[in-house]
């Protein structure tokens, strides 16, 4: 194997894993954009997406093409419920209070998943058949193409939604100034509910498309939450495009760190580079520097 094809392999592998970090990050972004809350239960949405698809397939006997959208829909409903039952009752408190609540929600969801699904790791069949695709000496799984395709479509959809639609702009307005948005006739409550639905949907999508490659278990959400949050910061908090690019970049950094430096320090390598980037651009790669109001 030549050095060039090895390098290509590192990039492909990193980008595949990075896509889930990106989708988790996208979920963080959507909720942050509407509420200024960092939803630490985001990783659990990713986990639920994968696990529910596995269980619909195994025990519900639902065929795969149906199990996937079904899982995504259920998680979306869970997202709405999380907002209704835990965030709305404490409306008006400081974002910090809400962030702590989301940590509680994540522990609850993880514990519930453990009781219902058990502690084992599960695998999901790939969406399409076929062996690895050869690409200049490096190999690519057909499932990776699904991952890239769905990630790309999702980010384009989100970008379009926030930039071009009235509802998207209304959601952004809620984060800027809740009261002003409400005075402008925006129904803030529905916008927040919508943001939770979107973020759960995006997270679940990430979980479902990656489960065939990486396997899934009740506790995969913790790591994905952390990596997704890191990706968010790297890309610039609040920017959907930045979130996904940040995720893919983080994945590639990890993979290159493992391949070229040392696999024992791969996370350290990725995070050192990330810190360096943040020193250089504190608001992230694509974030606009925010002026602090006094």
């Amino acid at each position: 194997m030549t050095a060039a094809s090895a390098l290509l392999q590192y990039v492909i592998s990193g980008a595949t894993v990075g896509s889930t970090y990106g989708l988790a990050a996208l979920g963080f972004t959507v909720i942050y954009n509407t509420t200024e809350i960092i939803n630490f239960a985001q990783g659990e949405f990713v986990m639920l997406g994968g696990m529910l698809a596995v269980f619909a397939l195994r025990w519900g006997g639902v065929p795969l093409p149906l199990a996937v959208p079904l899982a995504v829909l259920i998680v979306t409903a869970v997202g709405v419920l999380v907002n209704r039952l835990t965030i709305r009752p404490v409306q008006g408190r400081s974002p910090l209070t809400m962030i702590i609540i989301t940590i509680g929600v994540s522990i609850l969801l993880r514990g519930g998943a453990m009781l219902i699904f058990g502690k084992d790791t599960f695998s999901l069949p790939a969406f399409s058949q076929g062996g690895p695709i050869d690409l200049g000496g490096a190999t690519l799984l057909p499932q990776s193409l699904w991952v890239f395709g769905i990630t790309l479509l999702t980010v384009l959809g989100m970008k379009f939604f926030f930039d071009r639609t009235l509802t998207g702009k209304a959601m952004l307005a809620c984060a800027c100034d809740r009261k002003a948005a409400s005075l402008m006739g925006i129904h803030v409550d529905s916008m927040v509910t919508l943001s939770f639905a979107f973020s759960a949907l995006v997270g679940a999508l990430g979980g479902v498309i990656l489960a065939p490659i990486t396997l899934t278990a009740y506790d995969v959400g913790i790591l994905l939450g952390v990596k997704g949050f890191a990706a968010c910061i790297l890309g610039g908090l609040g920017n959907p495009f930045g979130a996904v690019v940040g995720g893919i970049l983080l994945g590639i950094l990890e993979s290159l760190g493992a391949g070229l430096v040392s696999s024992g320090y791969k996370d350290a390598v990725a995070f050192i580079i990330m810190l360096a980037l943040l020193f250089w651009r504190p608001s992230g790669l694509f974030g606009s520097a925010r002026a602090e109001r006094v």
Binding site: A6, Q9, S255
Partner: peptide, 19 residues
Amino acid sequence: EVYGPKDTDMTAQLTKIKG
């Protein structure tokens, strides 16, 4: 080579071994 117990992709390490 080493990998984290929660890692989901070890192609980087295996690519290195392949070389």
